[in-house]
Design a protein around this nucleic acid. Sequence first.
DNA 1: GATGAATGAGACTTCATTCAT
DNA 2: AATGAATGAAGTCTCATTCAT
Lengths: 225, 225, 225, 225
Amino acid sequence: MPKPTFFNLPVEKREKIINAAIDEFAEYGLENASTNRIVANSGIAKGSFYQYFEDKQDVFLYLLTMLEHEKLEYFKDKHPSNKPMDVFEYFRWMVKTGMEFNSTYPRLVQAISRVMFTEGLYYQNFANIRERSMQSLRALIRQAIQNGEIDPSVDADLAVMIMETWSNAISSYILNEGMKQQDIVQWVRSAKTQETIDKLLYVMEYGLRKTESDFAKHFQGTTSS
Amino acid sequence: MPKPTFFNLPVEKREKIINAAIDEFAEYGLENASTNRIVANSGIAKGSFYQYFEDKQDVFLYLLTMLEHEKLEYFKDKHPSNKPMDVFEYFRWMVKTGMEFNSTYPRLVQAISRVMFTEGLYYQNFANIRERSMQSLRALIRQAIQNGEIDPSVDADLAVMIMETWSNAISSYILNEGMKQQDIVQWVRSAKTQETIDKLLYVMEYGLRKTESDFAKHFQGTTSS
Amino acid sequence: MPKPTFFNLPVEKREKIINAAIDEFAEYGLENASTNRIVANSGIAKGSFYQYFEDKQDVFLYLLTMLEHEKLEYFKDKHPSNKPMDVFEYFRWMVKTGMEFNSTYPRLVQAISRVMFTEGLYYQNFANIRERSMQSLRALIRQAIQNGEIDPSVDADLAVMIMETWSNAISSYILNEGMKQQDIVQWVRSAKTQETIDKLLYVMEYGLRKTESDFAKHFQGTTSS
Amino acid sequence: MPKPTFFNLPVEKREKIINAAIDEFAEYGLENASTNRIVANSGIAKGSFYQYFEDKQDVFLYLLTMLEHEKLEYFKDKHPSNKPMDVFEYFRWMVKTGMEFNSTYPRLVQAISRVMFTEGLYYQNFANIRERSMQSLRALIRQAIQNGEIDPSVDADLAVMIMETWSNAISSYILNEGMKQQDIVQWVRSAKTQETIDKLLYVMEYGLRKTESDFAKHFQGTTSS
DNA sequence: GATGAATGAGACTTCATTCAT
DNA sequence: AATGAATGAAGTCTCATTCAT
C-alpha cells in the first residue's frame, strides 16, 4: 500500500501518477512495466516514486484496491434492494452491472485484467483476492442448488467454474469490442449490446438450470466430490 | 524457424535445449523469457543459441510448429472414420481427444497456452494461427445451424465464441488440475475426469442445442448481424 | 544532444567524460568506439553514460557542436575587420587562423577529422554540415572569378575542389607534424611553420591565379559545365 | 600472406573468396569487416577460412600485394619507352595511367583506398608500403630540382607532399565520380574526363614549375630542411 | 583438406533502486 | 519532502577464432 506521503499529495498530482501507472500496466503488464516511464509520464522525480510507493507491485496493489473500492460503491448504488431474485437473475444482474462498471473505468479494468490474467497466477498476493471473490460465488451456488434452482447433479465446484468462466469471457469480450467504440458507456448500454449479453447468459443458464432435462438421467448416481 | 545447425545436433542436445525453452516460456511467457536462463539450463554457450535460432521468438515459433505437427499426428490416428456425428458429437470428440493430447505433452501445451493467451494479441504472427483454427470451427457451426442442430436464433459468431470459450476453459481447467497429479495421462483417462468433461460439455450443449426451448421466444425477431 | 543531466554535472566530471570520448573517437573512429572504454576511462558507471547521452553518436554530435562553437568564437576575435582582401588573401587568412585554432584544440580536431573523413560519408547528418561549409567557399570563388582574381578557364567546381583539397591537406599535414612537437601552439606560430604554410598556399595560389599564363591557351574554348 | 592451401584451390573458388573479401572491405573497412559475412558470401566453411589465411588482416595484405602486382603489370605494358619526359610529363603520365588502372579494378582500388586512408595510419604494416611508394616519388623530385624543372626554393619534402596530395585527390575524385557511371573505363578515357584531369594537373604544375615567378622572391634565403 | 559447431568475451542498452543533497 | 545522479546487474546479440570430426 502507498506510503502516507502519497496521500498527502494534491489530488491532481495523485491522479497524474495513477493514470500514468494505469497506462503503463495496461500496455506492458506488471513485470515489464517500467518505473522509469511511469515517473517520466507522471512528471515526478524518480526518488519521489519510492517515497510514495514501495515498488511497482505496491502501485499495482493500490490500483487493485481502488478498483475493489470503486466497484463496491458502484454496486451499492445499483443494488435492486427489494426484488427477490433467483441465482440466475442475480448473476445476470451482477454481470450486467459489472459490464456497466467496466465501461466506466475501461482503462483501469483493462490494466488490471491484463496483469491478473497473465501474471496473476505467479503472485501469491493476487491468488488470495481471486479466492475471496470466488468464495462468495460458491456460497451463492450452494444455496441455489439447495433451493432447487440449479441441477444438483451438476457439481457445485463445476458450477462455480462455469459461472466464473462466463463472467470472465463476457467481460473480456465486451471490453475488447467496447474499446473500439467511440463512447463505450453508451455502447454497453445500447439495446444490441445488452441483447448480446442476454444471449450469452441465456445459453449458460439454460445449460445449468434444473429442468426435467436429460442431465439427471445422464449423470445419475455419479455426483463427484 | 531454427537454422540448419540446430537440426544437425544430436537428439539429446536438441531435446535439452527444447526442454529448457519450454520451461522458460511456461514460467515467464515470451516477452519475459530470458535467453540467458535458457542457455544456462541447456548447458550450451550463449553464442551457440544464436547459431541455432534467430532469437527468442524463433524458438517459440518452432515450439508452435512442433505442437501443430504432433497434434496433427495424434488426431490422425484417433479419427473415428466411419461414424456419422452431429456437431456436438464432433465437438465432444475433438475436445476429449484434445485433452488426451494435452496430457501427453502437458509442459509444451502449458508453455504455448501461456504465451498465446497473454501475449498472442500483440504478435501479428500468432493472430494468424489463431484465426485459422477459428475459421474451421465457424464453418462447422454454420453447417450445424443449417442442419438444425444449433438454435438459429443464436448468432453464428456468438456460437463460435461460446464453443471456443468452452474449449479453452475445459483445456485450462483440465491442464491445471492434471498438473497436480502424479500420472496426468492416466488421470485424464480416468472415468471421473471423463465424466467431468462430459458434464461441462453437456451444460454447453444443452444451452446451445435447438429445442423447443424458450430461446426463440426470448429473442425472436432480434437476430443480430 | 546530451540530456540535461549532463549539463548539471560538475565541470570536472564533464571534462573527464569529454576527454575520454575525444580520446576514444580519435583512436577508434565513431563506429568502432567503445562505450565500455569511454565509461572506464571516465570513471563513471555504465548506466550513467546513458543518463547523459542517447548513445555514442549523441556524444560525437556534441563534440561537433562544441567544435563549431569554439571555432566561431575564435574566428570572431581574430577577424581582420577593415582590410580589403582578395580571395587568396582571405583564404590564406582563413587557413592560417584555422591552423592556429586547430593547434589550440588538437585532440578534439583530430578526433573529429578522423570520424568525418572516414565515416562522414555514411552519416547523413555529417554530410549536411560538410555541404554547408562548402557552399560558402563556392560562393566566394564564384565572386573571385567574376572579380578576375581566379582564372575563368578553371571550372568553378574544380576550383572549389582544389581549395578544399588544399585546406584539408594543409590541416592534416600541420596537425600530424604538430602532434609530434612538445608545444604545438608555439610550433604552429613559429616562423618556420608559418613559412611552410605560406609556401603551400603560394603553390596553390600561383596555379589558380589569373595571369597571362598559358592556362587559357591550353584550355581555351573547352570550359566544361 | 595466404597459406599454401589457398593457392592450391581451384581458381573459381579463389576468386569467389577474393571478391567477397573485396566487397566486405569496401563496405566496412578492415576493423569492421566480418569474417562471418566473408565466408557466407564465399560459400566456404568458417574453418576453411582459417586454413587459407591467418586472419582478416592476412586477406587484406594479400589484396594489397595483388594490387601492387596488377599495377606493376599494367604500368609495364603502358610505359612510353623511348620518349624523354620531364618530371611533370612523367607525373601526368603516371596519374593518367593510374586513373585508367583504377577504372579497370574499381572495387579493389576502392576497398584498399577505404582501408588505407581510414585505418592505415594505425597499422604498422601499411606504413611501410606507403613509405616505399613515397620514396620513389621523392627521388624523382630531387632529380627534378637538380634538373631545374622544379623551383628549388620549394622544399623537396613539400613538393613530395604536394604531388602525393594531388595524386590522391585526383584518384578519389575520379573514382567517386566514376562509380556513378555505367561504364567507368569508357568514362575515364572520355575527352571530358581527361580534360578535367589535365586541368587539375596543370594547376598543380603551374604552381610548382620553375618560372621567373615571384616564388623565389617571396621565399629567397629561407629554404628549409 | 574440409567442415561447422562451440565458445566466451564484449558490444550496446535498460532496469529498479539507493542516497546524498 | 523532493530531487535526480549514481549504480551495476542483467538484458539481447555479434564476434573472431578453435578444434574435433
